[in-house]
């Protein structure tokens, strides 16, 4: 119960974030939806051992968060809370895929004087990597594991940024403009609207029960669970009927229209084009690698 209510506060908070007034917020929702989809699509299109090439993509969340003035600590916290899922799936990889596919010559690194700042040998010990003759050998499993984690944070942050800069109803409107069938859009809007009402109702029922059970942490029995859910369902059905009445009284005849001004102007085109260009560049050129090569040449 606590969990879902916390989630509700989360949604509340993200809703509030979506109401702020930065120029990112004022962009047409369609531009943000498209950019997010492109971002997610490109990020997941990499091979499973890619790590370095994914790093530049962090620029997108970082810049969006600062432009849109989002609370970075909050978003990171939210992401960390979601981590375990990807972690548990990904963590199998290092155990199964043990072929060494990456070797890093430590002697080479010592040339770069990095060893002065980071004690790599300790790092290697902690990571449980084999260390033979100054060469770190990293198995494919570890690479793909880190790749999964990076992808996960990138895609999740993109979704969170979308929702907290745009707001759910604007995302729905954007989807409607993209020709998503209207029953589905209406369904999404109603679900979102009444989620708050019904979760509130459910939590009141749960609270009422726990106040009448004198054993503090007594478990909910199945025989109690069923009538409770049943009651909630009946109330929900009644509510649906009342809402339908209220809709009919205001002339509802099966169509829901909304008058919203949406303007897809120069700003939106530049936003999409700019990010698309950046993403494609990041996709085509391994910037970190080239940077590294450049640097090592200087030495």
């Amino acid at each position: 119960m606590g969990n879902l209510q916390n989630n509700l506060f989360d949604i509340f908070y993200m809703d509030t974030l979506a109401c702020s007034k930065t120029w990112i917020h004022s962009l047409d929702p369609r531009a943000k939806v498209l950019t997010t989809l492109l971002f997610v699509g490109i990020v997941v299109s990499f091979g499973k051992y890619e790590i370095s090439i994914l790093i530049p993509f962090m620029l997108y969340p970082v810049i969006m968060i600062t432009w849109a003035n989002l609370p970075i600590i909050y978003l990171i916290k939210k992401m960390v809370l979601l981590m375990p899922f990807a972690f548990f799936i990904g963590i199998f990889n290092p155990f199964i895929d043990r072929d060494i596919i990456l070797k890093i010559d430590l002697t080479f690194i010592s040339l770069l004087d990095i060893a002065r700042f980071v004690d790599l040998t300790k790092f290697i010990e902690i990571m449980g990597l084999q260390n033979s003759t100054g060469v770190i050998e990293i198995s494919g499993g570890w690479l793909s594991f880190f790749s999964i984690m990076i992808r996960f944070s990138l895609t999740v942050s993109a979704a969170l940024i979308l929702i907290s800069t745009t707001g759910f109803d604007s995302v729905c409107l954007a989807l409607q403009k993209f020709r998503v069938p209207s029953p589905f859009i209406v369904q999404l809007m109603f679900l979102y609207r009444y989620m708050f009402v019904l979760i509130d109702e459910a939590s009141r029922m749960v609270r009422a029960r726990s106040l009448r059970t004198f054993d503090a942490d007594s478990k909910m029995r199945f025989s109690l669970f069923v009538p409770m859910i049943g009651q909630l369902l009946l109330r929900t059905l009644d509510r649906a009927q009342r809402i339908h009445l209220a809709m009919c009284c205001r002339g509802f005849d099966g169509h829901i229209q909304m008058v919203r001004k949406m303007s897809f102007g120069m700003k939106e085109i530049l936003f999409i084009a700019g990010w698309s260009f950046v993403f494609v560049m990041f996709r085509l050129y391994n910037i970190p690698l080239n940077l590294g090569i450049l640097l090592s040449k200087l030495y």
Binding site: M189, F190, R242, I243, M258
Partner: peptide
Amino acid sequence: STGMVFQDPDDQLFMPTVFDDVAFGLINF
């Protein structure tokens, strides 16, 4: 010609924003 205000405002306010809710009847009529 009649307007009904229901007992539970949550039943009456079903659109995503206040503006949409007030506009709902106008659009339909």
